[in-house]
Simulated assay, not measured.
Amino acid sequence: MNIKISLYLLSLLTLLVSCQTSEELKSEQYFVEGYQLYTANCANCHQAEGGGMANLYPPVDGSAILSDKAMIACIIRNGMKDTIMVNGKTFSRPMPPNPKLTEIEIAEIVSFVTMKWGKDSVYTRIETVKEALTACKEYPQGAGL
C-alpha cells in the first residue's frame, strides 16, 4: 500500500513540475543561484537577511534601489563611493567593485534581491544587465551612483 501512495505522490510531483513554464523555471534557477552568489559576495556586509550592518552598511531589504535593476547592476559591478540614504539613515562607507562577477552572475544577484526583498516575481534578464553595464561604463568607477 505504501508503494502505491509513493508512486502516486511521485507522479503528482512530476506533473506539477512539468506544468511550470520556462519563465517560472528560469526565475527559480536565477533565485537559487543568486542566493548563493549573494551569500558569497554580499552577505558579509549587507547580511544574510538583507538588513545591513548597523550604521556601517546599508540594508538591501526595504531599500528604494530595489526598483532600479540597472542601478543595482552598476553598483554591483562598479562599487559605490557616494554617501547614500537608505530607510532614513545615511551611509558613507564605500562599497568595493566586483569586476570578477560575470554578467549572468550579476543578473542572478539582481534577480535574487529584487525577488526576495523587492516586489519582483520574475528573474532579471541578462540583456537588462548588459545594457545597464554598458550605460554605466561612461561613469568613473562608482561615481554618480
Rank of each mutant, 00 (worst) to 15 (best):
C74A: 13
I65E: 13
I126C: 00
V129F: 01
A54T: 10
I76H: 07
L12T: 07
K69H: 07
A73D: 05
Q20C: 10
L10Q: 11
A132P: 03
G118R: 07
Y35L: 14
T14C: 09
S22V: 09
P97Y: 02
N55G: 12
I65V: 12
G50E: 03
C19A: 11
Q36R: 10
S111D: 05
K89S: 01
F91M: 08
N2K: 11
E105S: 08
S11Y: 11
G142M: 07
I84S: 09
V17L: 15
S92M: 08
D120R: 05
R77C: 03
T14L: 15
T14I: 14
E23Q: 14
I84N: 13
Y35C: 04
I109G: 05
G51E: 08
K26S: 01
I65M: 14
A54M: 14
V60K: 12
P94M: 15
Y123N: 05
V113C: 10
L7G: 02
A135R: 09
Y30I: 08
M1R: 06
P58G: 05
K137T: 10
E131R: 12
L145P: 00
E28P: 00
E24P: 08
V17Q: 09
M53D: 02
M95N: 08
K81Q: 11
I109S: 06
S67L: 11
E24K: 15
I106F: 00
L10R: 11
T14N: 05
I106P: 02
I65F: 12
I75R: 15
I109T: 05
Q36L: 12
A64M: 07
E23C: 05
I104H: 00
A48D: 03
N87Y: 05
M85R: 12
M80Q: 13
E127P: 01
S11I: 09
I65Q: 15
R93H: 01
G144I: 06
Y8P: 00
T128P: 01
A143S: 10
R125Q: 10
P94T: 14
A143Q: 11
